[in-house]
Design a protein around this nucleic acid. Structure first.
Length: 256
DNA sequence: ATGTCGGGCCCTGCCCGA
């Protein structure tokens, strides 16, 4: 079973790229982030025509998350993280699919830091970490995947010294990610490729993709029971080179 | 500091968020 995550950066603007990638790689389950579309503007029919069921949580202009599945029922278990009824951003959606609880997340960017946006990022991280503890305690197989907007270590940045003040790489952000993982999660891409340079994002500026000036910020965290089923993982880096593409590339894992 | 995207809107060049 192949499970993927993809920050599309505008699901309608990237629809041709998304459909081509689905057709070429045929993942079983897909988490999408940054739909940038209100609930009623999600391209549902095109996704159905591509062979996928979908649930999504849209929002005008920004954010937005979805879960797609091919030939599997998607049983929604939650939209939005608990802990702050004032938070109206569409950044978390969760479902039971194929016997696995899949949480698709779009963690706040947090720039500029310090400031209110960075505070919001750290608060959101805390809420995610609390919810993640409850998911682990359930003993069920769980995947938490999406755009974490965190480079966990220096290995995950093309030029770490340039990013130390950035919200994606500040010590507080890395500490928050470590605190989450240390609950007992496994970073699937790193587990299978302990020493390799792996990037999932290249910004649009200064020919970042051409220079491979990338970041690893899209992650798969697996609950302990799933680690033994992890057989492969990768980044569909070529998709970042397509016309009208997202600044992120799709990331995937294969489970037994 | 800069760079480049999608989306949205005082409908078209500019602002926001990333």
């Amino acid at each position: 079973m192949k499970i993927a995550t993809y920050n599309v950066n505008g699901v309608n603007g990237r629809l041709p790229v998304l459909l081509r990638w689905l057709q070429e790689t045929q993942p079983d389950i897909v988490c999408l982030q940054e739909l940038k579309a209100p609930q009623e503007k999600f391209p549902e029919q095109a996704i159905i025509d591509a062979g996928y069921n979908a649930i999504w949580h849209g929002q005008k202009s920004w954010n937005g998350v979805a879960i797609l599945a091919k030939g599997l029922e998607i049983k929604e278990t939650r939209r939005g993280l608990p802990g702050d009824p004032e938070d109206l951003h569409s950044r978390y959606i969760e479902a039971e699919v194929g016997g696995i609880t899949v949480g698709g997340l779009y963690l706040p960017n947090g720039n500029p830091a310090p400031g209110p946006k960075f505070d919001y990022k750290l608060a959101w991280f805390e809420r995610l970490t609390k919810h993640a503890a409850n998911l682990l305690a359930s003993g069920k197989p769980v995947i938490l995947t999406g755009d974490y907007n965190v480079m966990p270590t220096e290995k995950d940045v093309y030029k770490p010294e340039r990013w130390v003040e950035d919200a994606l790489f500040r010590p507080e952000t890395r500490a928050a990610f470590k605190k989450l993982v240390d609950q007992g999660w496994t970073d699937a891409l790193r587990k299978l490729n302990p020493d390799e340079t792996i990037y999932t994002f290249w910004d649009y500026f200064r020919n970042a993709y051409g220079r491979n000036a990338g970041l690893r910020i899209d992650h798969f965290l697996l609950s302990p029971g799933l680690v033994g089923r992890l057989k492969a993982a990768g980044v569909d880096k070529n998709v970042r080179g397509w016309e009208k593409t997202s600044d992120h590339a799709p990331v995937w894992i294969a489970l037994d």
